[in-house]
């Protein structure tokens, strides 16, 4: 069996807060296989973003082990790209769309190679005509696509996404979800996708994990045995899809949501 990309065991995170140390995550464990899409669902306050920051190497867990390709993590890793929820701050507003997309690769690529990589990434998200615009001139959905293009341009082995479509309208959201599935099919990238939307989690995931409680821990995890390619209408009408969605809702109710 192929080696896991991420392997977490007993991860704990305690952060200082105004009223003393606060336990954010408790005994979180899962692993992410190569080429797999793992969606993590959780209500607000269950430590979703903290968990993603740990995977990104931007936060250090206060307990447990996090391994990336078998090695203990010590900060951000090569081959891991992140798409943040807050695209307004994640994009450098003073750089054009093209130069934002170039940000992660401009130190290794120059000239035509860089331009070609940027164009390729922009084409993938359908923004090649906006290369010279500035992010603040674009809609929210387009800005988020710029961020995805920036991540893709780095040709990552792993994509970490923190509620990337949370701020988008339903139509754009559906398109972006399908784009992500295409991307995985085309590049074989592994994805950790964090969301509070149960339907989105089931639709996108090969596997779904439920993060719940405070401190948050993974209380449920199952494989999504829905066929590929998935379809916004047909897949969501499958009895199996409805059943999985039902199970998730029931599990969340059983754990008391985020309480």
């Amino acid at each position: 069996m192929a080696e896991a990309v991420f392997d977490l065991q007993g991860v704990e995170l305690v952060l200082p807060a105004a009223d003393g140390p606060r336990r954010i995550l408790s005994n979180v464990g899962f692993s992410l296989g190569a080429g797999e899409i793992l969606t993590i669902v959780g209500a607000s306050g269950t430590g979703k973003t903290s968990l993603l920051r740990i995977l990104a190497g931007l936060a250090t867990p206060t307990g447990g082990t996090v391994r990336f390709r078998g090695q203990a993590m010590d900060g951000p890793q090569d081959g891991v790209a992140i798409v943040f929820q807050d695209y307004g701050n994640a994009l450098l507003q003073w750089r054009s769309v093209a130069r934002n997309v170039a940000l992660g690769v401009e130190r290794e690529l120059r000239g035509e190679a860089l331009a070609a990589r940027v164009t390729e990434a922009l084409r993938l998200v359908g923004l090649e005509r906006n290369a010279n615009d500035y992010p603040w001139q674009l809609s929210g959905g387009m800005q988020q696509r710029v961020q995805i293009a920036r991540a893709v341009a780095m040709r990552p082995a792993v994509l970490l996404m923190d509620e990337p479509f949370g701020a988008l309208d339903a139509m754009t959201k559906a398109t972006q979800q399908d784009e992500l599935l295409h991307l995985r099919q085309a590049t074989g990238v592994s994805v950790v996708f964090i969301t509070h939307d149960i339907e989105e989690a089931v639709y996108l995931g090969d596997r779904v994990a439920l993060l719940s409680g405070s401190p948050g821990s993974i209380t449920l995890s199952f494989d999504v045995d829905l066929p590929f390619p998935r379809d916004q209408v047909a897949t969501r009408e499958l009895p199996r899809f409805v059943a999985l969605r039902h199970d998730m809702h029931a599990a969340i109710r059983a754990t008391g949501g985020h309480g």
Binding site: A56, P76, V80, A81, F84, D86, N89, A90, L92, L103
Partner: peptide, 18 residues
Amino acid sequence: IRELQLDVGRSMRMPWTV
């Protein structure tokens, strides 16, 4: 400057001078 803006740089493994 938001923490997130710096996180973007850190996640791309930029040295602090960059």
